[in-house]
């Protein structure tokens, strides 16, 4: 059961945000600033309560009090690299912070290599699709023909889009210019799909708020 006060606050804030559609106003700006403040405040509290306190402070306290394994006290060592970051505030001692920032960059670069290789390599393999409609186990079928046509379209889109971003050849040649135009068309189709989905997402935001206003706020006010 939702608290009626929370519903009323939610409704007033929602209407306040919608009031921007009429014109920019102080109420809207107040809500905007308050939302930012609330998010930052809660972020600090939750990070402390769910991360730092149980995973860092409690093991140290437990180790020092003898109620937990002594290895918990090793978490005190995390203060050393953590405090190094603050040397960025000093011009003279800035170099000290590079010890820890270098470590972070190294870890991030290593993981980025692994991430990209594991993500991109299967994409190259998946780009090689069968084009022969007769190659299926049952010979020529209508489904096989449609799949092959789809794969052919995919291949054309892939190659022409890559060609569009290939800047090492002169584009006056008709044999290059035509596929490049086709590639541009493919990019526009992809961007159109993205735009259409963006509109759908924005619509979903509005629908969710409308649903909240109607079902949680207005309907209980006028039962029956």
């Amino acid at each position: 059961m939702t608290d009626p006060l929370a519903v009323w606050v939610g409704a007033i804030v929602t209407l306040g945000v919608f009031s921007y559609l009429a014109r920019d106003n102080p109420f809207y700006r107040l809500i905007q600033q308050a939302a930012m403040g609330v998010v930052v405040g809660i972020q600090i509290v939750v990070t402390w309560k769910q991360v730092l306190q149980p995973m860092w402070l409690s093991p140290i306290q437990g180790a020092l009090a003898g109620t937990r394994d002594w290895t918990g006290a090793l978490w005190l060592l995390a203060l050393v690299p953590g405090s190094l970051w603050y040397f960025q505030l000093s011009k003279k001692w800035f170099w000290v912070s590079t010890l820890v920032s270098g470590l972070f960059v190294g870890v991030a670069a290593g993981l980025a290599f692994k991430f990209r290789i594991l993500l991109i390599l299967p994409q190259i393999g998946a780009s090689l699709k069968p084009l022969n409609p007769f190659a299926g186990p049952n010979g020529f079928t209508w489904e096989g023909f449609l799949d092959s046509s789809n794969n052919l379209l995919f291949l054309a889109a892939l190659l022409t889009t890559l060609l569009y971003f290939f800047f090492s050849v002169k584009t006056e040649n008709r044999w290059v210019r035509t596929p490049m135009r086709w590639g541009r068309l493919m990019i526009m189709v992809a961007l159109g799909a993205m735009f259409g989905n963006t509109v759908m997402t924005r619509m979903s935001y509005l629908i969710e708020r409308m649903q909240f206003l109607y079902e949680m706020w207005l309907r209980p006010l006028f039962p029956g």
Binding site: P122, Q123, A126, M194, N197, T201
Partner: peptide
Amino acid sequence: MSMMAPNYYTYIDSKQLCGMLIG
């Protein structure tokens, strides 16, 4: 979210993603 879906279709095609709910 619907607007992010075009970024992930390619992973469905390559079978890196087994499925996806779009919006």
